[in-house]
Amino acid sequence: MDDTSFRELARERLGPLGPEESDRAIDVTLRVLAEACSRCLADHIAEALPPGAAKIMREVIGHELGGDASAIVARTARREGVRTALGVEHLGAIASVIGEHLDDETMRLAEAELDPSVVRLLQPRRFAPPTIAHHDAHPRTTLSEGHPGGTDQLAQAHHSSAHVDSVSGVAHEDERLSTAHGTRQEQQHETLAEGRSKRS
């Protein structure tokens, strides 16, 4: 993989960042990871990367700052000038691209030297391509169309036992709210408001 392909893959993993922001995140991550490693491990990682990325790492080999993932994230975020949450995302995305370039020997060296939380960042990950919605050639029917597989819309559906005359005022007049006379106690004048109870 050449430098252009390396950066394109890293930009894709970084998501919606501009080219300058992406390049800054890539460069910062390469430097921070190189600083966290011993001279030997940083050199092994640089050997596995395209020449441009290797050159950036080799500029800072020998710092050997170490640290776990949270320390590396903090350094990444501070140097990029972003919030810690974005530092986590950027470091994880770019470290996974770096990890995909590493051979088994380099990964063994990393596992022996680095904090396990940093090694996990370098583990190659499976990034699924975005899913594309597929539309059926035949439109599906929904509940709003009456019932699954039906052709009548719900608004046109009639239930055979429905009281169709209730709204018009013809049937069930004693059950309509507008003409109801209250509860049974109210109809028999046995409410507490009337001053009578069943006991009196």
Rank of each mutant, 00 (worst) to 15 (best):
G149R: 01
L86C: 00
S166M: 03
M57T: 07
L9P: 04
I45M: 11
A69T: 01
D174H: 08
F6L: 10
F6Y: 06
G87P: 05
E190G: 08
P16E: 13
R31K: 14
L86A: 12
V97H: 08
L114K: 00
T29F: 01
A53M: 05
P50R: 06
L65W: 14
R78L: 05
D165E: 11
A110T: 06
D68P: 03
S200T: 11
E186V: 05
L121N: 03
G15Y: 00
E64R: 12
R83E: 10
R125N: 08
P16I: 15
G146F: 09
S197R: 09
L192H: 10
V28K: 02
T179L: 09
D152W: 15
S96N: 03
S178W: 14
A46K: 00
S5Y: 10
E64S: 13
M57K: 03
T142C: 04
L41S: 01
R75N: 01
A85C: 02
D2M: 03
I72Y: 07
R196M: 15
D174I: 07
D27F: 02
S38P: 06
G66R: 14
L9A: 15
I72M: 10
A157L: 10
E194W: 14
H172C: 12
T183V: 14
T106K: 00
A36N: 02
A77W: 06
T106C: 11
H158C: 14
E190F: 02
P51C: 08
T141P: 10
A155N: 13
V60N: 07
G67T: 11
D152P: 00
I61L: 08
A53V: 01
S22R: 03
R39I: 08
H172T: 09
P130W: 03
V28I: 09
L109Q: 05
H101K: 05
Q187L: 10
A95C: 03
I98A: 02
A137L: 14
L30K: 09
P148T: 06
A36I: 06
D2E: 13
D115G: 11
T141M: 09
Q185R: 11
A157M: 09
G150T: 13
Q187K: 15
R39H: 13
Q123T: 12
E21W: 00
F6M: 01
E35C: 11
T4V: 14
L65P: 00
H138E: 11
A25I: 06
G81F: 00
G146M: 03
A162H: 08
S38I: 08
D136R: 13
G169Q: 01
R184I: 15
R11C: 09
P51K: 05
T141Q: 10
P16D: 09
S5N: 15
V118W: 02
P51V: 03
T106Y: 07
L9R: 15
D43Q: 12
M57R: 03
D136L: 12
E8M: 06
D23C: 12
A46R: 02
P50Q: 04
V60L: 08
S197M: 09
G149A: 05
L33I: 11
T29M: 09
S144C: 02
S166F: 12
E20S: 14
R176F: 13
E186W: 03
L86W: 13
S144H: 10
S22E: 06
T131K: 13
D103T: 10
V167H: 14
V88Y: 01
L154R: 14
